[in-house]
Amino acid sequence: LALHRFGGQRTRDVIFAAVADEEAGGAFGAGHWVDQRPDLFSGADGRPAAAALNEVGGYSMTVGGRRVYTLQVGEKGIVWTRLRSTGTPGHGSMPHPDNAAVKLAEAVAFLAAAKRPGRVTPVVRDLFAALGLEAVIQWIDAGDDVTAAQALEAEVSDPVLRRSLDAMLRDTITPNVIHAGKKVNVIPGSGEAEIDVRTLPGTDQEALLAEMQQIVGSRATVEAVMALPPLVAPADAPIVGLMREALLAADTEASVSPMMITMGTDAKALARLDIPTYGFMPLRLDAETPFLSLFHAHDERVPVSALRFGLPVLHEVVRRFVS
């Protein structure tokens, strides 16, 4: 609407796509339209869109008094994984060692406890430098994850932001759903757990699954249910330069840095059309705003003041890119 009100000549088409199913992998949302109607993501000349703007990036982080706006140019890969345990059914009053619930619980506990070594990707190295967290990177490069964690805790007071930054430094394995047994007095013969695995660029997902199988041993089988690759879009693209300029014009006391998010978005579907996708929903957040802790939480929300800041910035970027 703002573009229409502004008027003027446009050299590119503007495509607005509102799609569902992103939280379930996008197979029936963006993935469906990319596979069945790729023309919807093309301009009048038939070429795929030059760029796409997506959720998550563009918000500000404040660490040590530094306010940094994050331009999302990358995101981790996803491997949603199923563990399956089997055992011998029986009466609960006569316990035995071949209990599927116990084997599944042990497998989940072993996976959750397994340490994932840190590794610094180029985008994350730039972000940590912008936030003044060079010491964390130095310790990760040195292979000392313990001291790196201590340095991160010393510099970042927000525990949720700290967890997010730590997850940018390593592959993560998070058990989230467990099913075993249906009646309190019956030893179950099978059980399943769902594990959310997120991988850094450069991680061999098949090799990681094999490592997970080695960790759980004979307690369970490890099976990938859905695998999507990590993505990194060019951080020096013209549209990224426009984002940087618009943000710095709106907030002269801040800086801007590329970022890789730990989550996944519909960018994974658009990548199949070779459309570079950037997370850019600009929000100026107070240092005290627990923004990341509101993701998938009770009372999920965005401050109105942040939207008032961000909408003109977003309009400026899109207007200049298509004009």
Rank of each mutant, 00 (worst) to 15 (best):
205 Q>N: 02
221 T>A: 05
224 A>W: 03
279 G>R: 02
54 N>C: 04
115 K>V: 13
186 V>I: 15
100 A>S: 04
5 R>H: 14
39 D>Q: 15
165 L>V: 10
171 D>V: 08
84 R>Y: 10
299 D>L: 08
274 D>T: 14
193 A>H: 08
200 L>R: 03
87 G>P: 00
94 M>I: 14
228 L>W: 03
51 A>Q: 03
309 F>K: 08
247 L>Q: 04
252 T>E: 13
1 L>W: 10
25 G>H: 05
280 F>T: 05
162 R>S: 02
262 T>I: 12
245 E>M: 08
238 P>C: 04
314 L>I: 13
207 A>T: 13
236 D>R: 09
66 R>Q: 10
107 A>E: 03
20 A>G: 13
160 V>N: 06
280 F>A: 03
307 L>V: 15
148 A>Y: 01
208 L>P: 01
293 S>H: 08
172 T>K: 04
281 M>F: 12
12 R>C: 09
220 A>T: 06
11 T>A: 14
152 L>P: 06
2 A>V: 14
235 A>W: 02
268 K>N: 06
199 T>K: 00
124 V>Q: 06
71 L>T: 06
182 K>R: 15
191 G>M: 02
148 A>M: 05
10 R>M: 11
241 G>S: 11
195 I>V: 10
304 V>Y: 12
30 A>Q: 04
264 G>W: 01
9 Q>C: 11
86 T>N: 07
308 R>F: 10
65 G>D: 04
300 E>V: 07
61 M>G: 00
174 T>R: 14
16 F>S: 15
243 M>S: 03
87 G>A: 08
227 A>P: 00
155 E>C: 08
235 A>C: 06
41 F>R: 09
61 M>Q: 10
8 G>M: 11
166 D>Y: 07
77 G>L: 01
148 A>W: 02
271 A>P: 03
108 V>F: 05
258 P>G: 07
282 P>C: 12
247 L>P: 02
36 Q>F: 09
128 F>G: 01
237 A>R: 08
39 D>Y: 09
154 A>S: 15
302 V>C: 08
44 A>N: 10
59 Y>W: 13
302 V>I: 15
46 G>A: 09
320 R>Q: 15
290 P>S: 01
196 D>Y: 01
49 A>K: 02
129 A>D: 13
20 A>S: 14
31 G>Q: 04
257 S>V: 08
142 A>R: 12
224 A>S: 09
311 L>Q: 13
137 I>Y: 09
147 T>L: 09
267 A>P: 02
201 P>T: 00
78 I>P: 01
2 A>G: 15
242 L>E: 11
41 F>S: 08
144 D>V: 06
154 A>D: 12
307 L>F: 09
158 D>P: 01
69 Y>K: 06
285 L>I: 11
306 A>C: 13
159 P>S: 00
231 L>R: 05
77 G>E: 00
268 K>D: 00
216 V>M: 05
85 S>N: 04
165 L>R: 00
88 T>I: 14
303 P>V: 02
187 I>V: 15
56 V>M: 10
274 D>L: 11
265 T>V: 01
144 D>L: 04
84 R>S: 15
145 D>V: 06
51 A>Y: 12
315 H>M: 13
261 I>Q: 00
296 H>W: 05
238 P>N: 07
139 W>H: 15
101 A>I: 07
